[in-house]
Design a binder for these strands. Sequence first.
DNA 1: GATTTGGTTCCATTAAGTGAAACTATGTCT
DNA 2: AGACATAGTTTCACTTAATGGAACCAAATC
Lengths: 261, 261
Amino acid sequence: MGGEGHADGTVGKALDVLEMVADQGGPVRFSDLLEISRYPKATLYRLLQTLVNQGMLSQDAGSGAYRLGVRLVRLAHNAWAQSSLAPLARPHLDALAAEVGEAIHLAQIDNGHILFVDKRKSTDMFETLAQAGRVAPAYCTGVGKAILAFLPQAARDKVMPQQSFHPYTPATHTDPASLLAELGIIRAEGVAFDREEHERGIISIAAPIQLRSGRVIGAVSIATSTSRHTLEELSALKPRLLHCAAAIGAEAENWQFPEIF
Amino acid sequence: MGGEGHADGTVGKALDVLEMVADQGGPVRFSDLLEISRYPKATLYRLLQTLVNQGMLSQDAGSGAYRLGVRLVRLAHNAWAQSSLAPLARPHLDALAAEVGEAIHLAQIDNGHILFVDKRKSTDMFETLAQAGRVAPAYCTGVGKAILAFLPQAARDKVMPQQSFHPYTPATHTDPASLLAELGIIRAEGVAFDREEHERGIISIAAPIQLRSGRVIGAVSIATSTSRHTLEELSALKPRLLHCAAAIGAEAENWQFPEIF
DNA sequence: GATTTGGTTCCATTAAGTGAAACTATGTCT
DNA sequence: AGACATAGTTTCACTTAATGGAACCAAATC
């Protein structure tokens, strides 16, 4: 089983194409996609047609270029509301943000990558890479490491090979061994630090959000810049952060099944 | 109630199922979906499996209930950034919001319904139904009517039958004829008013965002509550609103094809 | 211990997706 | 203008994948 291609059936292929368009980050022409994908011309063409038909993609009138359709925005609104812990964590993040006055991030893991589902920004003075809906690598972010550390062995084994270990900064982990070593420490301490591993000058302290069963369902972090605070100063916020994470976890507990009728 | 139905191929069906889950607004069990959908058991089962596999749905560990997957949030982030006019309109909305101090909405039309793609809220004192990503009917919102009014005949004919004309308030249009009549007035005036047609106590003034070619690509509105302002007061903001809409339209003009590399 | 309810798997049937190649529409070079 | 490439669309014999009725299994419920 290779690195990628678990495209089950036609639906898988269609979604694969959708993802390709998403990755391009802008309008893509047919021939560009043809080059990137391994699908033959006609097949790709039909898949695109179908996706456009379905409103998942929209086609530029003039150029014929493809971009993601607005239907996705609508679906995601629902997804965010019903599937992420964002709505539930909201008040807790607000409280934490008000108290510490720094940027707060809420993240979940998605297929080996970190997905930011909500955030509060301290001030627009500096801008972290992260925004709600954005993705980031797990191995070099506070939230990522916090989640990885508390993942059950099996899940971690599945996720580790998905990490690229690209050295964003001199402080970035560049191999599984050193990361695993740190994960051990994180398990012991209960929080993870990002020591400018993803972005130079940006540091954070992160805590996993867990259910009583121990299952990790996400992470919260307090992020700041080195010009504003030191790691030690962040460290001082540990109790407050853990409290917030615990509060969110507790609330997630009795939420399993919002009974519909 | 169905209507709908133009499910092309397997992909269409899968997306149809996805939408069904989205509509439920929460975890759904297999049998619930089985009841709602016209698909046979085995077929529905496989479709769900595929979607879960693909991360478009996630399945609750304990109950086996389905909900929308986080992958959607990720995709939507891209969709929002690349396919809506939100990023481009951002500074203009900020400016307008700062100036008028009321709630600003930016919307596009999607399959006959209004999709809010961005907003600025005046104060959290009152909460409009609208939020980024949310949908609302076209026939009873300011932005909706502004867009409908300037749509080319053919497009409008396609969209009108999709309106439900549900009477949210006493002021809501309840038939195509009265709506069409107002659309004429809106075309003449250049702006649309929401006179508590969707939500009691909420009024707005909306302007279409158009390209030089005349094509409508969205609408901006200034919304407020009747307790804060009258329609006449809103009317006074018309020049400022039109200016904002024009500015966004002008910017959208030279944006057609952001040249990728 | 028997029966219902909710979910999963089988497998012959059939429909749907496939893709090489032919075709059309649009530039672009000489 | 004619020739030539380039980008996108359609065709059609072929192959694969989706279908769904029915059987099956598991866990609640009688």
